[in-house]
């Protein structure tokens, strides 16, 4: 059951999207999110969705993956939808006791849910097409100006890499510990929420102990391989912007400007 988690999973490939510089991909993702939130009108939405569909098609990531990445956030989507549905005032469509649903509420509920869905779909594409190490490299380089103010950028990136590296290992271990405790008669599935939380203790304690042990061994192994922080360290992979990055940057800039122009001049279909 723990193996189904897909957020943060990487699918290797050779597509245009895969080959983009990770720094640019992070910037593009942020720009895409900004674009989604700037949009307040159907046409702008079509542009965002078009961009998303285009990106997914050229990256050859299956659209099914969108559904998979959306699964864990269904409750959030429903929550936003319901909140908008019942609490937005406007011309009532339906009224019963204290509950009233307005046309504006329905509209907003639909748009807000779509926005969240596209937000997750778009940001997932970043992790689907960028290996975690490229991602941390990208973040490290994007944040590197902060080194001047003594912000531990390299350490942060190293921590992220190690965390990503150990997620599958620890998941596997959790599975093992769970089976071991079940074999000893631990009941993990029944009872109320308090009882279930209590049942987690015999899983978490061994997991923590082993995580600390792993950390110690890993630190030793890293020291043996001469790790001494950022100082004097080189990188095998050198990041370099290419025409692809320039092209995508221009494309997203044009799209964002279009969205802003649509917001300003086209009043039909807005919400």
């Amino acid at each position: 059951m723990l193996k189904d988690i897909t957020i943060g999973q990487y699918f290797p490939g050779e597509s245009f999207v895969h080959k983009l510089d990770p720094r640019m991909k992070i910037v593009l993702t942020i720009a895409y999110v900004v674009m989604l939130f700037l949009t307040n009108n159907v046409y702008g939405f079509i542009i965002s969705v078009g961009f998303l569909v285009l990106s997914y098609s050229i990256s050859r990531i299956s659209f099914k993956m969108i559904l998979k990445s959306l699964k864990p956030i269904v409750p959030i989507i429903l929550f936003t939808a319901i909140l908008n549905l019942f609490f937005v005032n406007g011309d009532p469509l339906f009224k019963w006791w204290v509950i009233s649903i307005s046309a504006q509420g329905v509209k907003l509920a639909v748009f807000m849910s779509l926005r969240v869905i596209f937000l997750i779909a778009g940001t997932s594409l970043l992790t689907y097409t960028t290996s975690p190490i490229e991602l941390t490299d990208g973040i490290e380089l994007l944040l590197s100006p902060l080194k001047k103010v003594k912000f531990p950028v390299h350490e942060l990136a190293m921590m992220m890499t190690i965390a990503l590296r150990f997620i599958p290992t620890l998941i596997e271990e959790t599975d093992k510990i769970m089976s071991a405790q079940k074999a000893r008669g631990a009941d993990l599935e029944s009872g109320g929420i308090v009882q279930r939380a209590k049942a987690l203790i015999p899983i978490l304690i061994p997991l923590f102990i082993s995580a600390f042990r792993r950390a110690e061994e890993l630190a030793l192994a890293m020291e043996c391989r001469c790790y001494h922080g950022d100082e004097g360290r080189t990188r095998m992979k050198q990041l370099q912007y290419s025409w692809r990055d320039a092209f995508s940057f221009i494309l997203i800039s044009v799209l964002i400007i279009t969205v802003i122009l649509i917001n300003m001049f086209i009043k039909t279909g807005s919400f």
Binding site: S131, P132, I133, T161, I162, L164, R165, T169, R214, E217, L218, A221, M222, R225, M236, K237
Partner: peptide, 13 residues
């Protein structure tokens, strides 16, 4: 333990 001495998420890295 091979698991506890591999640092990166890709073999070549």
């Amino acid at each position: 333990n091979p698991d506890n001495q591999i640092v990166a998420t890709i073999v070549e890295e």
